[in-house]
Write a protein that binds this DNA or RNA. Structure first.
Length: 296
DNA sequence: AGTCAGGTCGTCT
DNA sequence: AGACGACCTGAC
């Protein structure tokens, strides 16, 4: 077994993580980075990632991972939850930047940026454009049900993997419209087509230099600056990304004296302001203002 | 009925 | 380069 700076206890059908710092399920799953983790009635979250169903909840000071084992923890969940990163150090650094960021970090103390799948992020964030979270979730769920693999049951519900490019290429534009993707149906269709025909491996984007990665992502239909930044940050480890949506735009205007400038300028403004950790700063700020509806 | 939501695309200066 | 309207969908 590997050595960690927290303790793991194997329990019935899962794991108990003790002394795990900077980890709060609600902060992680509700900070806007993912769409497939749904809160159950018991305050636990169930989601699908890397073809596995996992349930996560807090139990006092501990975190419970249900429906998994040590093997998957070491091979999947450790990296997925970015457990090798020292978030306390990042938070301390950000808190020194300014008062507002300090408050945002305190508010979303348990946020972690998940290391999600690049291909899934590509399609998911295309769907996110000019859309609402419940509808984004529904569309992704429809796509997974119809084109992904049945992963079986957990607590009475069926879960499906997010389809591979090959699997999703079975869908026509009309099929995608039926999944309630709206006008983004053709973006998804042509993006999937491009990935298949040009044999693009989205996982290889992780190794790319951030700027190149961003430019490559912009080549896909339905991917603009904001969506490319989200894909880069959440699916390709580009932590200097600064996705600017309506909320972040408000943040920059409310807290950081930004004028009402264009999106490309806002993006540069944020990246210059926060530097290499801009992506982390963006997440804490986004969660803070959206939860409290600051500036609305 | 009109507006708005994790924006992007196409078209026109 | 930069501005502007259109766009699925459904909830307020």
């Amino acid at each position: 077994m590997r050595e960690y700076n927290f303790e793991i206890e194997e329990i019935e059908n899962g794991l108990r993580l003790k002394n795990l710092k900077d980890f709060q399920p609600s902060h992680i799953f509700d900070c806007g980075q993912c769409f497939r983790w749904i809160k159950d009635g018991d305050e636990s979250y169930t989601g699908v990632a890397m073809g596995k169903i996992l349930n996560v909840r807090r139990d006092g000071e501990d975190i419970i991972f249900d429906n998994t084992n040590m093997y998957d923890f070491e091979n999947i969940w450790y990296d997925y939850f970015d457990l090798g990163r020292d978030y306390s150090s990042i938070k301390n650094q950000l808190a020194l930047h300014d008062e507002n960021l300090a408050k945002a970090v305190e508010f979303g103390w348990g946020i972690r940026i998940l290391q999600q799948d690049g291909w899934e992020m590509l399609i998911s964030f295309i769907i996110s454009s000019n859309n609402r979270i419940p509808m984004i979730q529904r569309a992704i769920n429809n796509i997974s049900e119809r084109y992904g693999k049945d992963l079986g049951e957990y607590n009475g519900n069926h879960y499906f993997s997010f389809p591979t490019p090959q699997e999703l290429s079975e869908a026509s534009i009309e099929d995608l419209r039926d999944c309630k993707t709206g006008f983004r149906d053709k973006y998804i269709y042509y993006t999937t087509k491009a990935v298949i025909e040009d044999e693009i491996d989205l996982a290889s984007f992780v190794a790319m230099e951030a700027d190149i990665c961003h430019k490559e992502l912009l080549k896909f239909k339905g991917v603009g600056a904001k969506v490319a930044d989200c894909i880069g940050l959440f699916g390709m480890r580009k932590y200097g990304s600064f996705p600017v949506d309506v909320w972040v735009k408000r943040v920059l205007q409310e807290f950081y004296q930004a004028e009402d400038m264009s999106l490309p300028k806002m993006r540069k403004y944020g990246m210059d302001l926060f530097g290499k950790d801009a992506g982390f700063a963006q997440q804490y700020l986004f969660y803070y203002v959206r939860e409290l509806e600051i500036g609305k």
